[in-house]
Design a protein around this nucleic acid. Sequence first.
DNA 1: GCCGAAGTGTAGAACGTTCTCCGTTGATAT
DNA 2: ATATCAACGGAGAACGTTCTACACTTCGGC
Lengths: 338, 338
Amino acid sequence: MTARVTIADVARRAQVSTSAVSKVLRNAYGVSPAMRTRVRAAIDELGYRPHNAARALRGHASTLGVLLPDLRNPFFPDLIDGVTAGVGGTGYTVVISQSGSGPESESRAVHALIDQSVGGVVLVAPLSPQAQLEAIARTVPVVVLGRHDRSPYYDAVFDDDEVGAELVVEHLAALGHRRIAHVAHRDAGRGHPDTLLENLRARAYERAMIRLGLGHHTDIVWTSYSEEGGRQGTAELLSRPEPPTAIFAGADLAAIGALAALSEAGLAVPEDMSVAGYDNTWLASLAHISLTSVDQSAADMGRTAGRLLLERIGGRTASARISITPRLVPRRTTAPLS
Amino acid sequence: MTARVTIADVARRAQVSTSAVSKVLRNAYGVSPAMRTRVRAAIDELGYRPHNAARALRGHASTLGVLLPDLRNPFFPDLIDGVTAGVGGTGYTVVISQSGSGPESESRAVHALIDQSVGGVVLVAPLSPQAQLEAIARTVPVVVLGRHDRSPYYDAVFDDDEVGAELVVEHLAALGHRRIAHVAHRDAGRGHPDTLLENLRARAYERAMIRLGLGHHTDIVWTSYSEEGGRQGTAELLSRPEPPTAIFAGADLAAIGALAALSEAGLAVPEDMSVAGYDNTWLASLAHISLTSVDQSAADMGRTAGRLLLERIGGRTASARISITPRLVPRRTTAPLS
DNA sequence: GCCGAAGTGTAGAACGTTCTCCGTTGATAT
DNA sequence: ATATCAACGGAGAACGTTCTACACTTCGGC
């Protein structure tokens, strides 16, 4: 454990004041080219690295936090890559944290993140009520992903889940399906912000069914956007007196679970049952799975979120609300009703 | 953006000195019960939260870093959960960072992490040469995961990759396969520490083949432990004059890619080709995939790594080296040679 | 020559903690 | 009564930065 090289060491070496070194570091005004090169040289020679904690103490953050509900959803890595790309070259480091399920553990996680003195946070599909998010936004710039919130205090990025759900229902209906069921996600705890993507997808599903005259075939099972959730939900659907002929799962992971349940039940996909997911993760595109899904461009969303966060940090106070239009990617798990 | 509640505010409220508050916070010696409760009350009333940057400046870290090569490998979430569980209840927060591929970006990432003044880091399958890791270990406690390094300066946690590879080869050989090929991972850049798990698996595969008298059937394609890698590697294997009858992919993700390539080539699994993976991630257990794999208990490894890190932080200087014994999980992608 | 402005550089006070000393009690031992 | 000591509490110097003020040049314009 060697002693740290500080700005003072650099200053001594370069025969200037610490203020001067600080200026060079921040490339602030008032530095002659000669001094700059001298300081730069000293920095390199000593292998100086700024101490972020000290900087943070003075109010300058060097990291941005991304809070994910869990790491298992294959949608998130793409999102993270997008965020990283969006803030690329600005000197910010992106740190990732897991919020767990439930508003309490989420709140704990977000505060833990803030306590790291991050410059801003991207909250992915948070469960906390809007008021609470706004309280957070008063402390640190916030971008919320996956909720259609309309808040003056934080930005929102989301795909148009209504459109996405419609695309799926219309696709299935066009294939001749009428009994189209939906596997939805029920959050832990009470609250359930109704701007949260899972709830919007479910409602949009209902509306699309009604619009297409299939209202009486509406059938939602509330489990979770996980493999297990999809499996259970599908099992439940299969036990109906009149099971559906197509299942629209609100997430690819749940769709995968549905495929598992169907294969266990000895049903063939898409011959006996069509299945569609949402998110178009790489899972869906696996040749082995080839799941019809809705693409919402995780990378774009992440990049946008990153950019908005930087803008907020840069001083923008007007609130942004950016919607991304999803697009259907038909694959082999959906086929005409036979 | 409200002004921060500091220790001084708490002190004022509780009519004590800041030193006293600090003592209560750290539950240090020299605090009367009366004062303690008074301070506690003030803390709650004001909603005080300690400023980690300030603490870090004084040398106390509140976070532990985990550096992952990438987030897409489904093995990692389990690992993270293990680490989190292993350090649970100690007040440390786990932050995750992505190292990218290649020693340079890895080195950048690990330094960025250290600059966050983490109390210690878990490096997952790092590519940097041992000397460099030891340099890092001189700055901050380090636990390396997935390398069989023997260093006096950092701890190592790994599964016995030799045994794991043997299990697979023996399993396939017992099923009658002789032309068993291996999809290996070739790291970016030079260096390739030979204690890295991917290299050990490949070597153990070779040795097992020789031991079973199949040495002349040894066939390794070096791509990567990713879906794309598995796909390409398998395509290459299929173009051999005499293609293998079984493929041992060094990671589940690569095995999935192999399945994709096979399905594209119109080959049935396991009828025409047996496929085995490694890591036993949830992907492998998906009913739809049901991949034979090697389990190395990600959660255990993570928990162990977390625990070791805490011990190091706690002052242990002797180096630990913990090996976990893997176990074969046969599923539906491997079958007797027909 | 004088004045203001522009260009360079420094001193030193923050930022919010921790933690080492040290001072003050009151009780106990001598 | 005095010395000793434990228990409690506080003063104040760090930690490594940033950044506001200010001081000192130099230079051009008058």
